[in-house]
Design a protein around this nucleic acid. Sequence first.
DNA 1: CTAATCATGTAAGGCGTTACATGATTTT
DNA 2: AAAATCATGTAACGCCTTACATGATTAG
Lengths: 194, 194
Amino acid sequence: MTRSSRSQGSLAVSTLGYALLCLLVRGPSTGYDLAAQLRRPIGYYWTARHSQIYPELARLEGAGLVTHEAGSGPGPREKKTYTITAAGRDSLAEWLVHPPTRTAPKNELMLRTFAVGAADPLRMAQMYLAMANEHGQRLAQYRGQLAALADNGAEDRGHPRFGNYATLRFGVAYEELRVAWCRWIASKLVDGPS
Amino acid sequence: MTRSSRSQGSLAVSTLGYALLCLLVRGPSTGYDLAAQLRRPIGYYWTARHSQIYPELARLEGAGLVTHEAGSGPGPREKKTYTITAAGRDSLAEWLVHPPTRTAPKNELMLRTFAVGAADPLRMAQMYLAMANEHGQRLAQYRGQLAALADNGAEDRGHPRFGNYATLRFGVAYEELRVAWCRWIASKLVDGPS
DNA sequence: CTAATCATGTAAGGCGTTACATGATTTT
DNA sequence: AAAATCATGTAACGCCTTACATGATTAG
């Protein structure tokens, strides 16, 4: 049984598949729109290009987790609006409560930091300050979005945007940490002894 | 000019290549040993299997950034000990001061959190508490390692292990944040209104 | 009239994991 | 006697990015 087989619901769903279900559970959407939605705030934690999304939607449909309705689109092909099925909701609900599988960490900033002794300290300090700036700007954005959500009552766990609120709270705390750490190491490299 | 071309030093080096140089700048090593070194603490931020490391070392040698000396090994093949070259040191020093290229975020926990409303709140709370536990255990490990480094004087930026110290400081702060956030959302899901 | 946006797909190639393959030495 | 460790490589396959391909509608 190949992966493109239709009419079976027991095929393994990739994390990307669940990411799409996370969006589709909030309402029907086209592949194009899903690509656009993979921005704020979920795009801070998961992204995908349309070249990945279109084949994945076809797989989800083959597994019976979504269906689509086609209509006339702007281009040469039909526009397809995807909707999550009851099986899709069940599959998502079960996946959500499982602890995440550990994925390989990829943090280039910490990789550089591990070898910080092999570079010029002043140039490294400048790099860290530039990163502090970048994270500081993101922090300001996140704080603004968080305040807007709080105003709409999204701190309540029953609110439909509570998920946005909770992820943004993490984002704010993480950016604060990164700004503080970057400033700490920069000052260490400039003022510090030896 | 293909990637396997020898005797040229201008070929693009991948991030994995620089990760290996980050280790080799501390001293010569075999591919096997590099795979083992990609654990504490650099493995918290970057990992690779031996199947990736061996071909990458050959590419680095083709680019003139490392050399190797062969001796008799335990198995059917020769044991190769790699050493960073002066060109390798220069290339690394230049790479270190560049700000990291933005890589696609992959945070499965935040992905799940975005769709938290589609799952059973109590089961989600249990999952978050399990994660808080896991991160709490890592936090204890990191704190132990950090204290050992501090005792050896690694807070000094001139110390050969200052890189380990700085990355671990980030690790401790990050794990603290994750534990606190997981506990916050778990209590929100259990006690919270609605 | 030019550019952006909407909309869907495929192809080539890099990166990374798992599994296959070999075999000596040391520990249990 | 069996298992773990040391040590190096290749092959198959999945995930992901970049680039190729098409074309209507709308905004500047």
